[in-house]
């Protein structure tokens, strides 16, 4: 089963993402900030990261830089932001994100990107029961 790490300090957002991702059949792990996310990463590999920007202790940019600096398999990362500014997107990409999307993310939209980034073919995409 594909493993996804959802990193956000807002429990509501984590629940929102979790509910979408679990419905697609993925295993979801949560972290409430970048530091905790790094701990989760140290414990095991993930196939995808969903990263919030603003978080206490270590923000999303910082987490990604740390992550991309590691000598380990590098899974795609989606940066989930509340800002639609071009600057934020550039900063996300510079830090090592592979996709930048703006909250609130529509469930079907998020699902679509997640499936693409996990390399799931249309066959693998059907509507889950």
């Amino acid at each position: 089963m594909k493993r996804i790490l959802v990193i956000d300090d807002a429990a509501t957002v984590r629940l929102y993402h979790r509910s979408i991702l679990e419905e697609l059949g993925f295993e979801v792990t949560e972290a409430v900030n970048g530091l905790e996310a790094l701990e989760r990463v140290a414990e095991g590999d993930f196939d995808l990261y969903l990263v919030d920007i603003n978080m206490p202790k270590l923000d999303g940019y910082g987490f990604l830089r740390e992550l991309r600096g590691k000598d380990m398999p590098q899974a795609p990362a989606i940066m989930v932001s509340t800002e639609a500014g071009a600057n934020d997107q550039k900063l996300a990409f510079l830090s090592g994100a592979n996709l930048y999307i703006v909250k609130p993310v529509r469930p079907e939209r998020l699902a679509s990107h997640v499936l693409t980034l996990l390399g799931m073919t249309p066959n693998g995409r059907g509507a889950p029961s």
Partner: peptide, 17 residues
């Protein structure tokens, strides 16, 4: 790491279609 992530992403994206 960033480049490797891009490579992984590209491979996945192509696989997705």
């Amino acid at each position: 790491g960033r480049l490797r992530a891009v490579a992984t992403t590209l491979e996945a994206a192509f696989a997705s279609i």
